[in-house]
Design a protein around this nucleic acid. Structure first.
Lengths: 143, 143
DNA sequence: AAGTAGTCTAGTAAATAGGTAGAGTAAATA
DNA sequence: TATTTACTCTACCTATTTACTAGACTACTT
């Protein structure tokens, strides 16, 4: 299961993706529109900002906007930034590999083999679906 | 990420799957062989026993054995029993559906649509891979 | 300078993860 | 039938994570 944090992040990004190019949105308005606790959303957006997925402007007329076009922000990236690796076990993660502590021998691990397939299956969907795809009328995948 | 509990469960089941038909294994030996804390393993096995995936025999000569043939125990089932639903959000789970509390309208939720695909991708691997498949030399899937 | 709006650090309650401890119960056998 | 063997069950525990809230601070605009 993904966290609420990840869902909020996706909802916020999808909302921003629907704004006209260059238009900023206040945290307050975003929170209200998507029913996300404002202070919690602040943290989430701040974090996504630091990670370069969105931009902010301070002072009057400020707010948040996407850092890239909605077609270039993949769901997989958002989930990784908020919840961590997509892989079900660390030893099959491509972006954050590290060995399983309890694992005796990775090379012969029966679980690892299947988990690789699971990871690829998850990434196969998430890394091919952009915000733009999610908003597209026909539910078609990118590319 | 799956829990350590789930990994231990899989390891234990895989170990049992490798025994000759009808052969029991002591918790103690299983714990030692797979390097799982014994008391923790007791709980896990007890739970899997209650859920019918394995059987036990008490007293001398007792121990644990699989409740079904390794070809009929699917990885997806094991993960569900230990960690819960495979689905990344409750509203797309086929075995444990319930709506997301924070969700305003499930019908039009953009996240839900993709998550359905993700769930199917995960289940597509996990529900088609049995313990026997995992032990098979060639890494082929069932059926 | 005033006001607006994002930034940053702490704190907190509840749930989950990953165990440990020890008494209880059933089966086998001497 | 007493003893031993092994699983069964309940309770407990600590650390971490999740999902927030509070409040001070900083930067930008007018």
């Amino acid at each position: 299961m993904i966290t609420r944090r990840a869902k909020y992040a996706l909802k916020a990004l999808l909302y921003l993706a629907q704004q006209p190019e260059g238009q900023t949105v206040l945290i307050r308005d975003l929170a209200k529109a998507e029913r996300i606790p404002k202070k919690f959303l602040e943290q989430i957006l701040l974090d996504l900002n630091r990670k370069g997925i969105l931009q902010s402007r301070k002072g009057k007329g400020g707010g948040y906007l996407l850092g890239r076009s909605p077609a270039k922000i993949m769901m997989g990236e958002v989930i990784r930034l908020t919840d961590g690796p997509l892989a079900p076990v660390p030893c099959v993660s491509k972006t954050a590999y590290h060995r399983c502590e309890e694992c005796v021998d990775e090379k012969t691990c029966r679980i690892r083999r299947v988990m690789k397939d699971v990871r690829d299956a998850i990434a196969g969907v998430m890394d091919k679906t952009s915000l733009a795809d999610m908003l597209g009328k026909k539910g078609m995948k990118g590319a």
